[in-house]
Design a protein around this nucleic acid. Structure first.
Lengths: 117, 117
DNA sequence: ACTAACCGTTAGTCAACACTTACCGTATGG
DNA sequence: CCATACGGTAAGTGTTGACTAACGGTTAGT
């Protein structure tokens, strides 16, 4: 659970990011949350479901109200993924800068042809 | 450009993450990239377009081949966004732990009712 | 020139998704 | 109790998005 895939799909939706932003500052019941947007409570509820399934949000029931709040640990895996991708890409960038240092825009370079064999 | 929205939408697709992972290790032409998956070169090309529009990837043309590579700076804004959300959510978590310390699962708490007014 | 390899683009298809409307269960308050 | 507020669920709709197939454009090799 809390798979990187679910987290990214959840965050890809702008409205869900906005919801998460609000829940990152306060603990908020659904109705109050829905008032902030021009969509139905139903839509907000569905967004909350996606966020909760992704492990980004949790809720506590108090009477008829459901108080939602952000779950910071839910972002841990994604942060790790980004760090890994970031550093790998940086390695490639540095390596290419080195090899291209004296090549410029000249083509027909033999290094790449070798890499393709 | 390189808006957080474009980056997240680009990364939300599993295939694109896989492509990005390959491009994070090496500089790869499109055809070689397409061989790694069971989809058409056209699909891969479209994925690359999305990744490039998001600023996650760049390419250089050498003959008939287009060599793509990851662009690490493209992840900077997203990392910043995550750090911000993470820390905000942590603040809320700490605050709630404090106030709930002596409350446990008791309901009808007056603090929340005040916050709703 | 001719051919073949490489790649992007287009139109069309099918599934996923964000949303609304209607409904149902539960809990508080008169 | 009965009415009301709160919130999740189900069904239906319009749009987005990932994919294939077909095409066109450019470069390399003979």
């Amino acid at each position: 659970m809390t798979s990187t895939d679910d987290v990214l799909r959840a965050l890809a939706e702008p409205r869900r990011r906005e919801i998460l932003r609000l829940l990152s500052r306060d603990e908020v019941p659904v109705g109050r949350l829905a008032d902030q947007f021009d969509v139905t409570r139903s839509a907000v509820s569905q967004h909350l479901r996606v966020l909760e399934d992704a492990g980004l949000v949790t809720h506590r029931t108090a009477g008829t109200r459901n108080y939602y709040r952000a779950l910071p640990e839910g972002l841990a895996d994604l942060r790790a993924y980004l760090e890994e991708t970031w550093s790998s890409a940086l390695d490639v960038a540095r390596r290419l800068v080195e090899t291209d240092a004296g090549v410029l825009d000249d083509e027909g370079n033999e290094a790449d042809e070798r890499a393709l064999a």
